[in-house]
Design a protein around this nucleic acid. Sequence first.
RNA 1: CGCGGGGUGGAGCAGUGGCAGCUCGUCAGGCUCAUAACCUGAAGGUCGUACGUUCGAAUCGUACCCCCGCAACCA
Length: 616
Amino acid sequence: MRNNSEKIFIAVAWPYVNGNLHVGHLAGYLLPADVFARYQRLRGRDVLMVSGSDCHGTPITVQADKEGKKPVEIVNEYHKRVVELFDLYDLTYNLYTKTTTENHKRVVHELFLELLKSGFIVKGVMKQYYSAKDNKFLPDRYVEGICPHCKAKEQRSDQCENCGRWLKDGELIDPVSKLSGESVELKDTEHYFLDFPKLENDLKRYLNGEFDENNEKKSKKEIWREWVFAEAFGWLSEGMEKRAITRDLDWSIVLPEKEIKELAKKGEILEDQVLANFEGKRIYVWFEAVTGYLSAPQEWNGLVQSDPAANDNKTVYKKTKERLFRYFKSQSKNWKDWWMNPNSKHYYFMGQDNLVFHTLMWPGQLIGANKGRKANEKYALPYNVVVNKFLNFNKAKFSKSRENIIDSREIAEEFGTDAVRYFILSNLPENKESNFIWERFVDVVNDELVANLGNFINRTLVFYDQKMMGKLESGEIEEVVKENIHSMIEKTGKYLEKVEFANAIYHGLMELARFANRYFNDKEIWSLIKTDKKAAENVMYNLLQLVEALRLIIRPFLPMAATKLSKILGREEMEHSASKDDWGFTEVKETKLTGKVELLFEKIDKELVLKDKTGK
RNA sequence: CGCGGGGUGGAGCAGUGGCAGCUCGUCAGGCUCAUAACCUGAAGGUCGUACGUUCGAAUCGUACCCCCGCAACCA
């Protein structure tokens, strides 16, 4: 089934599953992506949001060595925890999967072979440390020796931590394997490389918005955050080099050796494009993980096809230890509607460490693949690459080893996900780094979320319940109230379209909450009710319209509170569906309280929390 | 000269040529429906430094100082 609503693809960075996710992950990409997705769905757009666990690469094997386990055990354990965490925060992925699936491997192989055929993947030779004792090549991380500059011992092979100097291949004195302690030697090793110099010109055109596959012809300078564009442009101007896409590893996706050899036999690639030896060669994680953006939608497609409820056009949510899967009512069931549709818009969310991979490398991979694809099967390129800087803690990076960390699950269990969402979203490191400070967290939650937004809704509903029996059937909306509601909803939406979350909160959502409190005060409904009951009822009618507007506007940001409020008001949940634009205010004539009036947000005991968290 | 980002009242941030703004905090007043919440008002800044361009600079140029990211278990 097809529908005509605008297609929005939301690609969320794939976290390494070598540990638990901390608050920095939430701020970097998880929460912004979810808010954006929820908002787009409320606008009736057909959103496909995917991500998964990045299961390969050295960080995984390092963690496995540390815990004395196999990589696959590490991956399964932490993947399961990430799935639990995302379920707890109710992040609305259509699919959260992982890179160890057969589907992913198939798609990576496909992309690899396409790039090989169109000549963007070439062979090359590099030097790598080889351990005769272990009988294999070792990643830099597994080799240490003496720094030739400062003579410090036990330094890694790429940079000396002691003097900070970069080391060239072979400069390290007496290199030894960290695994066996035996000495290692530099040896030539043959690998595949992605030929970025060949893609450079197309990437320039891509940034300038001139690219064929990009319909809008708008420079990325106008769309991306200013500093994101500047950084990407800087990298590109420096000139790009060929980059290895295979490594000598044993924990990663294997090369499609058979298919490569067949292509050579059929003459579709040159004999010279075949490696002399495939032994121990695996696909480098940076090439493979981003390909998840292409493989996950296909996995989702398969799940939708085989799900009876989805085929009945019902909203589906399924959580297993393997994945999170969702289908929203009246969504398209065909992944190609997002990927092979020049009108679909692709938004990528990530932390700044991933900037180059998503602004240049991944578009390069797609552009290369598109060269060999038919006009109607070309992949859509990233429209906006939304990058956040880092959220620091105690003026330093979050760090596992230094125990400078706040666990995402723990903070949610202690304060609730809405409080965490509100604080983080209103303090995002959108243009510069920001800091997580406990005192600020408590102040922001208490003074803004609880005292302003929460208090307005509470004082209105309590008054309504106690003084008016929670029953009112009609009234007249005041022009100024209507005006404010409409302009604040519009403003919030405008900022969200531009992926400016703090602005959306402060110049939209909270502005409306402040207006509402002012209106309550100015009308003095508590005295009015004693002198003119009819007039008081009309004021209440207006207050209830404001509550209704807030119920709508908080929905993308504070989903738990929105649901709770819907229950109290006895209103239908605003349902995510890919057809109806709900982001508009409709006056509600009648409000009957069906649930008990409860607090939406709880105040935090500042003294207690500060003592607990900082010892002060 | 590796590439980038940032330095604005106590805190966090907006503002890219035209009277220096927002949220929080502080102080004073008001209100009492509400989670001691809400509303009004005030104090508080020579916009990192210096020179320059301009009728006019936080905003443009040049030089300099400081902090940070990109490369290390990390987003």
